[in-house]
Design a protein around this nucleic acid. Sequence first.
DNA 1: GATGAATGAGGGTTCATTCAT
DNA 2: GATGAATGAACCCTCATTCAT
Lengths: 210, 210, 210, 210
Amino acid sequence: MTARPAERDTLSRSQQRRRDDIVEAALKIFDRDGFEGARIDDVAAEAGIAKGTVYLYFENKEALFEGVVRDVVKPAVDAVERTAENEHMSASERLEAQVTLIGERLGKGSMKILLRLMIAEGPRHDNLRDFYFREVVEPGMAAIRKSLADGEASGEFRPGTADIHPQVLAGAPMMGAIWRILFQELAPLDIDSLLDDHLRTVLAGLRDRS
Amino acid sequence: MTARPAERDTLSRSQQRRRDDIVEAALKIFDRDGFEGARIDDVAAEAGIAKGTVYLYFENKEALFEGVVRDVVKPAVDAVERTAENEHMSASERLEAQVTLIGERLGKGSMKILLRLMIAEGPRHDNLRDFYFREVVEPGMAAIRKSLADGEASGEFRPGTADIHPQVLAGAPMMGAIWRILFQELAPLDIDSLLDDHLRTVLAGLRDRS
Amino acid sequence: MTARPAERDTLSRSQQRRRDDIVEAALKIFDRDGFEGARIDDVAAEAGIAKGTVYLYFENKEALFEGVVRDVVKPAVDAVERTAENEHMSASERLEAQVTLIGERLGKGSMKILLRLMIAEGPRHDNLRDFYFREVVEPGMAAIRKSLADGEASGEFRPGTADIHPQVLAGAPMMGAIWRILFQELAPLDIDSLLDDHLRTVLAGLRDRS
Amino acid sequence: MTARPAERDTLSRSQQRRRDDIVEAALKIFDRDGFEGARIDDVAAEAGIAKGTVYLYFENKEALFEGVVRDVVKPAVDAVERTAENEHMSASERLEAQVTLIGERLGKGSMKILLRLMIAEGPRHDNLRDFYFREVVEPGMAAIRKSLADGEASGEFRPGTADIHPQVLAGAPMMGAIWRILFQELAPLDIDSLLDDHLRTVLAGLRDRS
DNA sequence: GATGAATGAGGGTTCATTCAT
DNA sequence: GATGAATGAACCCTCATTCAT
């Protein structure tokens, strides 16, 4: 009886494609204009559909925002976790892989946009912020923490390493992401090179026993 | 027709005080609601004045935002620079002071709010972003860069240190600030302790010659 | 391309049944939400069909409203007229039967709904209002007028009775209907008892020659 | 601090006049288009102001409707009550005055519009319907009831008159009002003449002891 | 015939900005 | 200078109507 597609449990192939189009368009518009500044009209135009159609797939602007956040987060989750489980790597190698992954994810594409959206809008959208924390940040920190603990246990890192804040490792990738968001045109930053410096310094520091 | 205060070159003492009240109120409202979401009505109410009065001091919402950014940036500038010139400190001590200062500034008060506003709105306000970069970020990075170079020159740090991205040092304070903005309620982070871990690790890494 | 059912002269049995379902559903929704407030979606859902199907049977919302009015009016017409022709009743008995019938019709079921719809929407739908007047009101008034005239002719009522406005007789049933529409929950009114009072008083008044 | 006039306790003379203009305009537009059909734009145009100004005086469309109802009801209240207290009239005279007053009020001007609005929208606006009942209908019925009782007590009317539904008396004025709303153009009705017939018949009936 | 996704005009409401007092 | 009522453009969302399947 005329349920919106959005209210059904499942969407047909073509409906799913359309939903994805809308989310993709919304991500772009939200990035350009922010949540408040974004006009549903623009999202629809970007997606090549009529304004009303957006409302067939999302209850309202807030739900659209939520859809964007969830869709961007989804594929990010497993990637981080998979890295943590590479058993045949040394702790250093794993940390390097993890920091590099975070740097790459955060520094470009939709995760960069999401990061900015979360910083800008997160405090006004508690449930989305919580979701982002739970699904992205917490697992990431946990993965790093495990590598640190493993490195201490194996003697690769100095004693006490397990208790170091994982944010120390994630700091440079975060800095790189923010830099790209704000200053890339003004003062280009080579993220790979930044992460290189960061990893070389920090890993040396973790091995140091003086 | 008297000119608006905003159009005069100088403001009387009481006008300056009123202007500051408006900026202070606007900072709070922009932080709470974002640029688009902020209502001039709310700013005026927060400042205890009538809505029209805001327009006596600022041409429009955009100019008010600019006023906020400039006023917050102003006192921040010198502080960083002063630190860089403390000649009787070792490079390590100076870096420690600098990183700690950045962490404190960025992690609380109006600079934390400004950071968030810049990330959220910067890409839509190029001149403000440029201003922020020129007045805050560049000097900060330069100060760190100088400490790194001095440390290498004095033999305190390993060769090549001067070429390390200063963002490596600033990463942890930035991470701490973002964390506080987003997750402080969810998962409290002790910034001092984070910076401790960061500095111990990084400084050890910079001294390491292995 | 087969013609829509609505454009054919005749409907199959099952089509007629479906049309009736739609009209019945629409009556309910129009009653609940008014003409402007009614959503075709809701009518369709109430009828257990898809929204588009409504448009197979009715050109547009206006036509659906017209269908509702006509369908409700249809069975009402003959009833009133039949009463007027009961030759073996006294004038009083006939008036009593007529007033009671009007009271029952108007005070409940679809005629009550129709009355409200006509008051609410009639002035904006002249042709429907005219139709209602011609098919329902006029015959009703005529029937009463005839009873009054017959009663005067037979000496049952005082001279001049034939010239009395039939609305005098219909007033109480109308009042009862309006009361039920608006205040039944607030201050229940027993229509039978109201009509009793009304008839006793008015008939006595008509017989009075003082 | 920029409170809407509507949110203040008191309105200045000119504000009160403007508020009244809006209500007057709204009454006209609501009458023409119904509550749902009325456009705030049209109300504003009718009142000769900008659309936004309406919202300075009324929170929303619903509040505007409420304002209309309350403003129309206000002056109506006392009139009915005053009639009930005319001690030097006979019960018949008082009933006549009351029925005539109801007929005049209900049959034209803003009370006629209000009646129609209440029938159309009342069931969807419980509090307004209750207000209308409490302020207008109940006092009116009570006044009639008192006249009936007084008339029985004084012997002017037959025993049992006090128990007659007052709606019997109010029926004809109501019928006249509905008629004017719906059919005045189609079949003009002289309300005075209707009420004459009604009163002559009913009062005779009330005096009758046969 | 029946369906329901898609359309887009329309309307309620908000709020930056203006200006008479 | 200060005020806050007035303005009207803008934007979210709804829903009558269409039409491809």
